[in-house]
Amino acid sequence: MSSLRSRVLSISRWVSLTIAGSMLFIDLAVILYGVFMRYLAGGAPIWTDELARYLIIGSVLLAAGAVWVEGGHMRVALIERLLPPALCRLLNVYQWLLTLGLAIAGTVISYKYALSVSMFTSSGLGISRTIPMMSLPVGFALLSWHALWYGPAPLRTLVEDTA
């Protein structure tokens, strides 16, 4: 992998995972606040459940591209092990094009959807539904970005040590 490509992926991966991790930490705090208020103080505000749901969806989508690049997602690489090198290279190009195509399509479709729900407000937070729904196109765009910079190289696999 070229130096520029690896630096861009490294920085982009760090930023994505840092923001996603921060959102996950905030989500944990919101859930704990909701549990404390519900069971110890007598009643939780309605917004805690809704905010926790939006935060978990946003954190997963923001981390998806970085996880894809480092091979941390769930996949079965059996076919890649059985194919000859030339066909394996063709399979890698196919996987890359499929991932890139689906991620770009997901970006466009979810962006249109997020804009279409702008007239509705969320019940608990009282904000336009477009605001939390924008995590979908941003997440898909980041997946597209990471896949584009990664290129049609073989995907990394996580191997367990059996010792």
Rank of each mutant, 00 (worst) to 15 (best):
L28E: 02
G21Q: 00
V35E: 05
S12R: 12
A41K: 14
T48E: 04
P45V: 00
G34T: 12
F25V: 01
S16R: 00
R38D: 12
S22Y: 13
D49L: 10
R7D: 11
R13T: 14
A29N: 13
E50K: 05
R53A: 13
S16P: 01
S12P: 13
V35M: 07
R7P: 02
E50D: 09
L51E: 05
M37G: 09
V15G: 10
I46K: 08
A44G: 05
L40D: 15
A41Y: 14
M37I: 11
A29R: 11
I31H: 04
T48H: 01
I19L: 15
Y33H: 06
S10Q: 12
S10G: 13
L24V: 03
Y33I: 06
A20L: 10
A41E: 15
G42E: 14
R38P: 11
V30Y: 01
R38T: 14
A52T: 02
I11F: 00
A52M: 04
I26M: 06
Y54F: 11
R13W: 08
S22D: 12
A44P: 03
D49Q: 11
P45R: 03
L9T: 09
I31W: 03
M37H: 11
Y39D: 15
T48L: 03
L28V: 06
R53P: 04
V15W: 09
S22W: 14
G43E: 10
V8D: 04
L40G: 15
T48A: 08
E50L: 05
T18I: 05
T18H: 03
S10F: 11
S10I: 07
F36Y: 12
I11M: 01
P45W: 02
L9Q: 10
Y39H: 14
T48M: 07
I19A: 15
A52W: 01
G21E: 00
D27C: 13
R7W: 07
W47M: 06
R7K: 09
G21C: 00
I26A: 07
G21F: 00
M23N: 02
L40P: 13
A29Q: 13
V8R: 04
P45Y: 04
I31C: 10
T48I: 07
F25S: 01
P45N: 05
S10Y: 08
L32N: 03
V8S: 09
Y39S: 13
S10A: 14
Y54W: 07
T18Y: 02
D49M: 09
S16F: 02
Y33R: 03
S12D: 15
V8N: 04
T48Q: 01
I46G: 12
I56G: 03
L40K: 15
L40C: 14
Y54K: 01
F36N: 09
L55H: 06
E50W: 07
L9A: 09
